[in-house]
């Protein structure tokens, strides 16, 4: 077990070192998310609609689009110079590769989100600080669901000829439950609802996360196979 965790940690660490050296991904994701929010602000009239009603949707669309960039990059990087082959030759379980990638995606996305949230607060004039605890829980649950399925499908789409096109087409319809749940929960939290009052959404998101982690463990062997 300890060895397994070390293997996962090594993969996460490798992704971190790469990111620290190149500094390509995080800045790109952040700027892209910011652009998505800006475009939405221009496309709606904030003097007519209430910011707290459209805000959560816009926030999650920005996370989703920026996250897709991160996912595309995650396995593309490994395809260059056949790094994925190297990873698969490592005497580690294939699920360790999956979990390593999942955790590094999760961390990169979370960092991006932590930068976006304050800007969101300023642009939409919504007070996030008073509901920060439950909001972070919801953001984490939603991001986890996105990464769980996203990592699985990006490991699959990275082997296709048209990988950048196919990833969103495959991923977005499957993510609709998570998006609906995350937007609803965020909206309710901004309205001041307690987390305990929306247990059905929390349950839906949590069971989505758990079931797809299970499915990924069972199927990743069939994807990462030469």
């Amino acid at each position: 077990m300890n060895l397994y965790l070390n293997q996962i940690a090594a993969i996460v660490w490798k992704d971190f070192v790469t990111e620290l050296k190149t500094r390509e991904l995080l800045s790109a994701m952040f700027i892209f998310a910011l652009l998505v929010i800006l475009i939405f602000i221009f496309s709606i009239n904030l003097s007519i609609v209430k910011a707290s009603e459209v805000g959560p949707g816009i926030l999650w669309v920005a996370f989703l689009f920026a996250g897709t960039i991160g996912l595309n990059r995650s396995f593309m990087l490994e395809k260059e110079n056949d790094c994925l082959m190297g990873l698969m030759l490592v005497p580690a379980d294939r699920t360790a590769i999956y979990f390593g990638k999942l955790i590094s995606n999760l961390i990169f996305l979370s960092i991006m989100e932590l930068f976006i949230l304050p800007l969101f607060m300023i642009f939409f004039d919504i007070d996030l600080l008073s509901h920060l605890g439950p909001l972070l829980v919801v953001v984490f649950l939603g991001t986890l669901g996105f990464c769980v399925l996203g990592t699985l499908l990006s490991s699959l789409s990275s082997n296709l000829k048209t990988r950048e096109i196919m990833l969103p087409i495959l991923l977005y319809p499957l993510l609709i439950p998570i998006i609906i749940a995350a937007v609803r929960m965020t909206g309710q939290i901004l309205d001041g609802t307690e987390l305990s009052d929306m247990m059905k959404w929390v349950g839906l998101t949590a069971s989505f996360d758990i079931i797809y982690i299970g499915v990924s463990i069972m199927t990743i062997d069939h994807i990462l196979e030469e």
């Binding site: 699959l156 439950p177 839906l204």
Partner: peptide, 28 residues
Amino acid sequence: FMRARYAAVLGIVGFLNIPFIHFSVLWW
């Protein structure tokens, strides 16, 4: 073989999504 494996994974992932879609859309 690769196409068959990928499609099979998506076939499983897609079908398991149905209950989630059902409930999320219903509550939505």
